[in-house]
Design a protein around this nucleic acid. Sequence first.
DNA 1: ATTCCAAAATGGTCAGACCACTACTAGACT
DNA 2: AGTCTAGTAGTGGTCTGACCATTTTGGAAT
Lengths: 204, 204
Amino acid sequence: MSNQEKAKVYQEVLEQIRQFIDENKLSPGDRLPSERYLSETLNAGRSSVREALRAIELLGIIETKHGEGTFLKEYRPFNTVSLLSTFILHESKTKEELLQVKMLLEQSAARLAMECLKEDDCKALLEITRENRTMNERHFYFFYYLLKMSGNQLFLKIWQLVEEFTRTVHNIDYDKSMYENLIMALKNKKQKDTEKIILQLYKL
Amino acid sequence: MSNQEKAKVYQEVLEQIRQFIDENKLSPGDRLPSERYLSETLNAGRSSVREALRAIELLGIIETKHGEGTFLKEYRPFNTVSLLSTFILHESKTKEELLQVKMLLEQSAARLAMECLKEDDCKALLEITRENRTMNERHFYFFYYLLKMSGNQLFLKIWQLVEEFTRTVHNIDYDKSMYENLIMALKNKKQKDTEKIILQLYKL
DNA sequence: ATTCCAAAATGGTCAGACCACTACTAGACT
DNA sequence: AGTCTAGTAGTGGTCTGACCATTTTGGAAT
């Protein structure tokens, strides 16, 4: 009948936990209720509660400390992603979609950044491109700076997520020389150019 | 001593399962051993085995069918992304950020769609704008069509998540008359125009 | 006030019981 | 023989209770 099917208990618990975090405005480092308490208040067995907790622990959203409790964690995609990489059978379609989304996000990031780019920012960006890093790191810090500058934290998180995912699936060869062109295009507010350059970054 | 600390049982089980998949060269659709069997052969309680299975089920790596068994699934990042999004989105942020991300995604969607828009698609879109729906629904179906057409499921999923969440936070008044302009701009491949129009949709 | 140890609280793990669902099979019926 | 059906075995889904290991807490002894 409903598209809900019947949710498993652990999934409902998951949702409840999420809501709890939301309603109580928990921040990273804050403690969650104990497993036994959750079990009682949510009318679920402790094992079901644990299934939910283990799942989001694996995602890197929470952290448990024996004898202390369960704590909200500052989310870092790395955990998830390194785990996934051990499972993923390299599906080409998935890879393509990931790369395309990443590129689209970065084009948007550039568009956004163009509006508030200052002279100092250009210098900082130039600095980043010249630092001695791997291609992946350089690329990461470049766009990380752009997004940080734009001030939209949500967008930043989404991009980070996709970025991390992409890394597990594939190492991209970004063309180093493109970045300086990109900075120029940004400075001169040539939107079309920035988009083309970013597209080319992926065209190898 | 070791960087391993003491791995929890469920994490070891996880590793064993991964190895099992690897060694037996399981493909999507293949069945994994039953929980009870794993429990015995891995010297772990069934609950620990379940914690491991639930975790990777949530990630979308496996799928369980009541009464049948546990099956390997073709992994797509959607589940993971959407799962993480529910945490990331709720922890966020300001309404402005949310709307901005939504708008940026839709601008990208338009850019993407422009490349493969056909005459029939224009008709379909026109149809959508003329159907008698609420503003939110019209907007939703319009971009849903665009994204579906573009064929990137991951992007579709990300947009859907943001779109859905936006609704819970705020009802937007989209200007109905804009959509026909938007279709024209798409058809004529005027990227700048499409972006402007989408921006205006949010400028009320 | 300080120190120290027992108790409480918490997560980690296991075993067993029972339910719900699915697939299979032996037996009854035609 | 073929078909239908009811029972059964195997599987995931869930709960409960027990016990261990670790950390915190609070009170007693100094």
